[in-house]
Design a protein around this nucleic acid. Structure first.
Length: 489
RNA sequence: GCCCUCGUAGUCUAAUGGUUAGGACACGGCCCUUUCAAGGCUGCGAUAGGAGUCCGAUUCUCCUCGAGGGCACCA
């Protein structure tokens, strides 16, 4: 008995994307929510492919979609490529299942064949429009006699299959929105299978979710209005209706649905703009979910521990790239130089070889360590590391250039050149720190006036790594050259 | 047009039928006698509007407005 209850309560959720390429951040967030919920509840996260759109569901698209999911760190337990007892896990292979239940509904009279032609239906549409009525299927084929049906079939007339909608209201219990009421008269006998025999989405999804024993359907709000239709299908088939949780959409800054015309919208886009997966996940989760306190940074493990459905908000959320970038910056600072190096070599191979050609890893790693705290996205590393890794210094911004022209800069640089031998190279960073601090006593200038020229001379910009670190990272002779060069500019 | 959902600052959000409605990003200022996109402090800035219930409502109810979604032989 106990075992039975445990089995019934075991959470099973699914992510069922239509593999049309890289994953939209909205879908990614839905996947994350499903994943976190499954992990938090000790349930199963299932991956199913809604690939009935065969033209777009190419192997290439499937690959890039799965790549995105893995990159985000959302490993699934059951489903496509992974197997399980309730497969197959791609809709294109489940046709016999759909046929079986279609036939069952037909036999029970809960669905019927509709022989109406496209023209006839269009005429109905136009008529309704002309009379300012809401269009609803006339039901022309709802009560054909067996003889008529047989005749039509014998003549080879193509038919779609429609579900007979009972006069019965639907109450959708939504875990995020509460009870949502729908009146049966809002619906007509809608098509569940096309003339070509392929079921429409609402039907296939219900069959799949029911057969795969999905307990909680966490999906985007755009599906809420279709949920009653799906409930009609569950009921006609005698399946248990799962729990629903409809998550609001992610909006663009202009409050429209976030789409390609707003720039980067897919997980792949952000990956190759140089965002870290942990930053994207962290940001996305906070878009619509809150831990109910002030915390903002979470590791995946912490999210799994903290995540619950009642932390999900109801309103749509605008995607704020600036905050994402800020968050990525924070993650970059904390990421090890070694990890960053690995990512740069794989995801940014071309830029990597261009920027760091021929350099030993150790040298690149040191440079990364020095400047990662000033990077916002991964490719910033190449720009920031340039003056560390190359023998010379190139000053590209005018403000930094102007610093060198100031009289104070002359004083500072002159002093360093004259007292170069006093710089404690090779004696550890404590000695170096002490020496740098003592500079303030030797040269009585405000901090900025003192340190900006040094940083420009050594690093090429007035802002950047700490002075001590620069003295530690660069070679002694190189530092002397840079100081001299800056002085003569 | 019909149906559904949502509505706290520019943005993401927290909170309670009863303190000056809290935090974060962004923006502005100051500090850090080591800079900065870091850290610290600080400023600007919100309960869409209107009724009602209540001693009291951002919170509950209704209306309006606004935003988004759905109404396909798309997914």
């Amino acid at each position: 008995m106990t075992e039975f209850i445990l089995e019934v309560m075991m959470v099973r959720v699914r992510y069922a994307p239509s593999p049309t390429g890289h994953i939209h951040v909205g879908n990614a967030r839905t996947a994350i929510f499903n994943y976190l919920f499954a992990r938090h509840e000790g349930g199963t996260f299932i991956m199913r492919l809604d690939d009935t759109d065969l033209e777009r569901s190419t192997e290439e698209n499937i690959d890039s979609m799965l790549e995105d999911i893995r990159w985000l760190g959302l490993e699934w337990d059951e489903g496509f490529l992974k197997g399980g007892d309730l497969g197959p896990y791609r809709q294109s292979e489940r046709k016999p299942l759909y046929d079986k239940y279609l036939q069952q509904l037909l036999n029970e009279g809960k669905a019927y064949r509709c022989f109406c032609t496209k023209d006839e239906l269009e005429a109905e549409h136009r008529k309704a429009e002309a009379e300012h009525r809401i269009y609803r299927y006339s039901g022309a084929c709802a009560h054909l006699s067996q003889e008529q049906i047989d005749n039509n079939l014998r003549e080879g007339k193509p038919y779609a299959i429609r579900l007979r909608i009972p006069e019965q209201d639907v109450l959708v219990h939504d875990l995020i929105r509460g009870d949502v009421q729908f009146k049966s008269e809002e619906f007509d006998d809608f098509v569940i299978a096309r003339q070509n025999g392929i079921p429409i989405y609402n039907f296939a999804t219900v069959i799949d979710d029911a057969l795969m024993k999905i307990t909680h359907i966490i999906r985007a709000e755009e599906h809420l209005s279709n949920t009653p239709r799906q409930v009609f299908i569950y009921r006609a088939l005698g399946f248990d209706v799962p729990q629903f949780a409809h998550v609001s959409l992610i909006l663009a800054p202009d409050h429209s649905k976030l789409s390609k015309r707003h720039g980067a919208v897919s997980v792949g886009d952000y990956r190759f703009e140089g965002y870290l997966p942990e930053a994207l996940v962290n940001y996305l989760v906070l878009l619509g979910w809150s831990p109910k306190d002030d915390r903002e940074f979470f590791t995946m493990d912490e999210l799994i521990r903290e995540f619950t459905l009642d932390g999900i908000g109801k309103s749509g959320a605008v995607f704020d790239k600036k905050k994402l970038t800020w968050m990525n910056h924070m993650y970059m600072s904390r990421k090890s130089a070694d990890d960053i190096l690995t990512i740069l070599k794989t995801d940014f191979a071309n830029q990597y070889s261009e920027a760091f050609a021929g350099l030993p890893d150790e040298k690149v790693r040191e440079a990364i360590d020095l400047i990662k705290g000033n990077a916002q996205v991964l490719p910033d590393i190449f720009r920031l590391a340039r003056n560390i890794v190359q023998p010379d210094v190139i000053i590209t911004d005018e403000k930094s250039q102007a610093v060198l022209a100031s009289p104070e800069a002359k004083v500072v640089l002159q002093y360093l050149v004259e007292h170069f031998d006093a710089i404690p190279f090779g004696r550890g960073d404590e000695a170096m720190s002490a020496w740098v601090e003592d500079l303030r006593n030797q040269i009585p200038l405000p901090a900025k006036k003192l340190y900006h020229p040094i940083r420009v001379a050594l690093f090429g910009t007035k802002d950047g790594p700490e002075i001590v670190k620069l003295f530690m990272a660069l070679e002694r002779n190189n530092i002397r050259d840079r100081l001299n060069k800056a002085l003569t500019q």
